[in-house]
Nucleic acid binder design. Structure first.
Lengths: 175, 175
DNA sequence: TATTGTTATACTCTATAACTATA
DNA sequence: TATAGTTATAGAGTATAACAATA
């Protein structure tokens, strides 16, 4: 490895990433990966709009939303498991949990099975917040599916398969 | 807007973001957006592997690769245009250009039409580097398409459409 | 000895604001 | 007065390493 292993660096799409008329994109136009990046960028930005518009609290990133959903659906889950599920380091899951706790949405309770661990639980306020957020996110997603027409359903399946293929490629190459 | 407009915040997927067996994902499993995030995450990580494996210089992120391609295909393009094409602030394009220049891949020349601007150009080394990188990236992308079978081609089209739909949704909502 | 969570720190990427020089 | 690029700085997000408590 040339230097520090950039393996887990962040991509961080930012502003709108759209084709600029008159610009030549070369290979990029042919790459599935670039099309994926553009789509992800657009959805990411739209996610915030959807939440803000709905009156939901800003600062709820897709990641924070995902964490809230996971805790809601897996009451008592450990922080470390949250980290694993979200592809984060333990310290990252800590920050995430801190933030959710500061919002009053999540609670750390003692884990009866292991005194080192926390069990994460939604508070009543967390359930209310999630309910609103989930509604907004669902509507947002539905609108996209609608815009895609009949291909929408297949797209989701294809993306899941793509994630699988890319991961398998990694495993093969690494292992 | 509720607070500071998080509009252009970075998502920064990190480690591998895969379904953890036994964990309940709730809505996430139903969301196109989450499937997209997972796919993007997997491809992003695989991109580095593909480049590193091919012997290419590490630290070449998808973004840096894209910038290199853009400069190659639009000789003399201004930094500001690069920023626009990549959804970045001017200062971000500056850093990006600085890095490419440090690698000896890109050169800033005076823009004959506007003394305030630079014209960005690939160096000979840049052309060589791009040639190697492009080969690796193309192979990487091809492997993914292959893994997807007949749905691969359609997927790219669908993603482009999805980006368009999400962007239109934003514009409608904002405007 | 390994694991869970924490703390402190550093690194990367991005944006904002103020500045220079051109237009 | 507006634009291109720069500089300096701040902010969000992540990782690393060392530590305490527990397994």
């Amino acid at each position: 490895m040339a230097s520090k292993t950039p393996s887990t660096e962040g991509p961080a799409p930012e502003g709108l990433l759209l084709p600029v008329p008159g610009l030549a994109y070369g290979v990029l136009d042919q790459l599935l990966g670039y099309a994926l990046r553009r789509a992800q960028n657009a959805l990411y930005l739209d996610f915030y709009r959807a939440i803000a518009q709905q009156g939901g609290p800003a600062e709820v990133s897709p990641q924070r939303f995902a964490a809230l959903v996971l805790v809601a659906n897996n009451p008592g889950m450990r922080q470390g498991l949250l980290a694993q599920a979200m592809g984060l380091h333990r310290s990252g899951a800590l920050r995430l949990t801190d933030w959710l706790t500061e919002q009053g949405w999540v609670e750390r309770r003692d884990d009866p099975a292991d005194a080192r661990s926390w069990g994460l639980h939604l508070t009543a306020a967390g359930r209310r917040a999630l309910s609103k957020l989930e509604q907004a996110v669902r509507a947002h997603d539905q609108a996209l599916l609608l815009g895609l027409g009949e291909r929408g359903a297949g797209l989701k399946t294809d993306l899941e398969r793509l994630a699988w293929v890319a991961t398998a490629a990694q495993t093969n190459r690494a292992g």
